[in-house]
Design a protein around this nucleic acid. Sequence first.
DNA 1: CCTCGATGTTGAAACGTTTTAAAGCCTGAG
DNA 2: CTCAGGCTTTAAAACGTTTCAACATCGAGG
Lengths: 337, 337
Amino acid sequence: MRPSVGIRDVAQHAGVSNATVSNVLNRPDVVAPATRQRVLAAIEELGFVRNESARQLRAGSSRVIAYVVLDAANPFFTDVARGVEDAAREAGLALFLCNSASDGGREREYLELLHEQRVEGILITPVDAESAQIAERGTPVVLVDREATDGTRCSVAVDDVLGGELAVTHLIENGHTRIAMVGGPLSIQQVRDRRQGALRALTNAGLPADSLTFLETRSLQVAEGRGAGERLVGLPASRRPTAAFCANDLLALGLLQSMTQQGLRVPDDLAVVGYDDIEFAAAAAVPLTSVRQPREQLGRTAAQLLLTENEPDHEHRHVKFQPELVVRASTAIKRRP
Amino acid sequence: MRPSVGIRDVAQHAGVSNATVSNVLNRPDVVAPATRQRVLAAIEELGFVRNESARQLRAGSSRVIAYVVLDAANPFFTDVARGVEDAAREAGLALFLCNSASDGGREREYLELLHEQRVEGILITPVDAESAQIAERGTPVVLVDREATDGTRCSVAVDDVLGGELAVTHLIENGHTRIAMVGGPLSIQQVRDRRQGALRALTNAGLPADSLTFLETRSLQVAEGRGAGERLVGLPASRRPTAAFCANDLLALGLLQSMTQQGLRVPDDLAVVGYDDIEFAAAAAVPLTSVRQPREQLGRTAAQLLLTENEPDHEHRHVKFQPELVVRASTAIKRRP
DNA sequence: CCTCGATGTTGAAACGTTTTAAAGCCTGAG
DNA sequence: CTCAGGCTTTAAAACGTTTCAACATCGAGG
C-alpha cells in the first residue's frame, strides 16, 4: 500500500546522489539537463512524492497559510476567503480553510494545530473577544473583519458602527420610528458595533433610545432569523416595530421567510435591512436592502498584511474599510393605501 | 521572534530527558505525576509548541484529512463539508478545506500538496472526469457526490439521473411540454446525469427528445443563471419553453432574478425547478421547487468510508443515495386566467 | 539477602528531506 | 603541459520529534 519511496530510492534508481535529486526538486537550473531528465524519469517511474514534513522540518518554511473562518456556511465568509486565496496564490502560497463554526473550542483546537503545523501565517475571524486575544506563538496572526484592540497584531475590518448607522438612518428617513434590531449573541463584536451604530442613528435623529427593540439571537443563521420573526409578530401590535435591522443577511432572509409565512408583507408591514449584501440578498423573496462590505478586498488585504508580517521593520497596521448601503425593495417607502 | 523552543529545551528546563517530555505529550499516563507536572510547567513557561512536521516525520501519521471542494461559495458544498467535519471530529481528525473553484489546475495543485503533506485521507468532488482519475499515490481518496467508475476507490454519490427524472416528470405532470434545461459545462458529470434523467422523463411520458432545450452555461453560478434567463427570453415566443430545470439552485436563483427583472412571472410565465435544495431556495423571491440531496449525510458517509480505507480487508464501496423532490411555489400549477 | 516484576526514566537511533562546503571534471588560456 | 575557474555532483551534517531497548529504582516474596 505504502511503499514509501524516498528521495534516496530515486537517487539510486537514477544513479546519482540524493543531493542531486533534491536539487532537481528545488533548483532545477543548477543541475545539468541530462541528469535532470534522468532524475525526473526516475521520479515518474517510482511514483515518488516528496515528503513535505521532512522538507519543512529541514527547510523551516511551509508554503501554506490558513484562514479560520467563523461560519463556512455564510456566503460572506466564503467571499472573503476568495479574496484571501487570490492574494495567497499570487504569493505562491496555498490556503487551508478551517471552520470554527462559532465554537470557541474548535477555534482553539484549530489554532493549536496550525501553530504546530508551522503554517506561514493565520488569518482569523475570531469567535469572541477573548479568543481574539490568543497569544501569538511564533506564527503571525491577522484579524479579519474585527479590529485588533491592542497593537499586537494587524487587523482588517469594516466600520461596523457606521454600517449600523447607515442602515437605521435609512429606516428613519423612510419614516420609521419603532425599529427592531435582530442579532446576536452580543459576545460577537460586530453585533455590538452595529447596534451601537443603530443607536447613534437614533440619537442623530433625536429619537429616544427605546425606539430600538433589540431581539437577541443565539447565532447569525437563517433559522434564528425565522425565530426572531415569530417573536416579532408575537409582540402587541401597538408596540410592534415597523422596521427591522438585521445584523446579517442570513437573519434577514430568515426573518423575511417568517413574515411571508405568517401572512405579513415586506416592506408594507415590516421593512427589513440586512447586512453584508451577500449574493442571495438580491435574489430574495423581496430583494433585500443591505449594508455592503468590500468582502473580497477584505480578504485580499488581510492576506497581504499577513505577508508583510515577517519583514524586518514590520509595524502592525489596522486597515478599516467603509461600508455602503444598497437600497432595494425590502425598504421601499410605504404607499398610502 | 522565533526563539524556536524545542523538546530538548523543555527537557533541560524540567531536568528530565527529551524522551520523558515526549512521553508527557503522547502517553501522559506512563510518566509519574510529579514529573508530569514539572514538564507541563516547563512547557507552559517556555511557550513550547510541538513541531508537527517533526512529529509526523517520525510517527508517520498526520491527524488531518482534507476535502477538496468544487465551489466553496455554493452552500451545497459547505453543507456537505459540515457532515464531513462532524464525522472527522468524532474520529479525532481535523478537516482542512481546499477550494478548487472548478479549476482543474488548482485542484491538481491542492492534491499534490495534500499528498506531500501526507494527510490521512482526501475527500474530493472533482472538477471533471479526467481529474477524477487522479492516481492514488499512497493517500486514500474518496469521491464525493460523484460515482467512481472504476473500482479503484470508494465513492459517495446521489442518483443524479433519478433526480433529473423527478424534476422533469414533475414539470410534465404540471402540463409543460416545452422545457428548458439550464446547466453546464457538460464536462461536469452531474450535469450530464441530470440531463440524462430529464431525457428519460420525456421518454417515459412519450414526448419527443426535442421537447428539451438545453441551455449550456459556463459554470453553475448565479450569474450564469441570469445569463441563461436572458437567452431564454430572447427565444421566439412560439418556441420558448414554459418551464426550466436548472442543474443547481444557484442557476435557478439567477434565472429567477433575471425573469423578474425582465418582467416575466414565475411560475406563470416560466416554471422553475432547481437542484440541491439549499437553504436559500426556500427563501427565494419565489420559493423554489428543488431536488433535495442528503447533503450532510453525503459528507458524513464519505468521511466514514475514508476512515475504513486503511483497514486490512478494505474493499472499495460505492454508496448511492436517493434524491427527493421538494415542491414549492416556483412550479405551482398555472391558473386559468 | 537475593531475585523478580513493576514502574519510571533515558540514550541513541531513526524518520526523509535540505544545505553547505568541498571535491571532480572540463575547457581554454597561458 | 599546467592551471585557473566554471560547472556539476556529492558526502555528511543538520532539522525536532518518536520510539525502543535498556537501565535504574523499589517493594515484595522467597
